[in-house]
Every structure is written in structure tokens, then in C-alpha cells.
């Protein structure tokens, strides 16, 4: 476990760069992590997915898997790969300040 400064906030991250305390998350942190993950600007559609993941993550205590997002948030697989290319569930979990999503689907 390490501390890292993101967008002026001191937050705890694990060795893969996922935040370990979702309470420390703020929207400006999301914008900063997204840039590092290769998403220069978060659009309204990005935010809809992030908001869903935040709600779902806080309610269940774990980051939603890609299938959970596509079945419950009304976003298609194609859209997810377009919004968050190269590993969308992991990327959105990281941006949303949640842990790495677990599960095979």
C-alpha cells in the first residue's frame, strides 16, 4: 500500500494503482486518473458509467464487472470498449476509485 497525490489529494493506492479507499475519491481525481489511462476528456457518457460504478461499488462493496455494467447500466459492450478502450471494466473501476473487478464474466 502506498500514498499518492492525485489532483492535489493524498490517496491510498495498491501496487496496481487502484485506490483502496473509495471514500477518498473525488471527481477531479477521476479526471486525473482518466488522463493517465489514455482518456483525455470525460464526456457525459463516461460520467454516466462512472456514476453507475460508484453507486454499484458503494452498494455492493466491490467494483462491477463488465457484464454487470452492460446488463445493469444500459450501456452496450461496444460502447464500453469505445468509451474505455483496452479493458473497460478495469479502467472504469480505476477511474471510479474502486478496486479491481473480480469474477470471470
Amino acid at each position: 500500500m502506498a500514498m499518492r497525490e492525485i489532483a492535489g489529494h493524498q490517496v491510498q493506492v495498491n501496487e496496481e494503482g487502484f485506490m483502496t479507499d473509495p471514500q477518498e475519491w473525488t471527481k477531479d481525481i477521476a479526471v486525473e486518473i482518466a488522463k493517465v489511462e489514455g482518456i483525455p476528456e470525460l464526456t457525459l457518457q463516461h460520467w454516466q458509467v462512472i456514476d453507475f460504478c460508484r453507486q454499484d461499488g458503494m452498494a455492493t462493496g466491490k467494483a462491477p464487472t463488465l457484464r454487470r455494467i452492460t446488463t445493469a447500466a444500459g450501456v452496450t459492450t461496444k460502447e464500453m470498449f469505445a468509451l474505455f478502450p483496452k479493458g473497460p471494466a478495469k479502467k472504469v473501476a480505476k477511474i471510479s476509485g474502486l478496486g479491481k473487478p473480480e469474477g470471470c464474466v
Binding site: L66, F81, G87, A89, K90, V105
Partner: peptide, 11 residues
Amino acid sequence: LVMGWAALGNG
């Protein structure tokens, strides 16, 4: 199918 999906999820 399972491994392919996991691979895509890992970029």
C-alpha cells in the same frame, strides 16, 4: 469464451 473475454478485459 471465458478466457477470450478475460483477455479482452485486460486489453
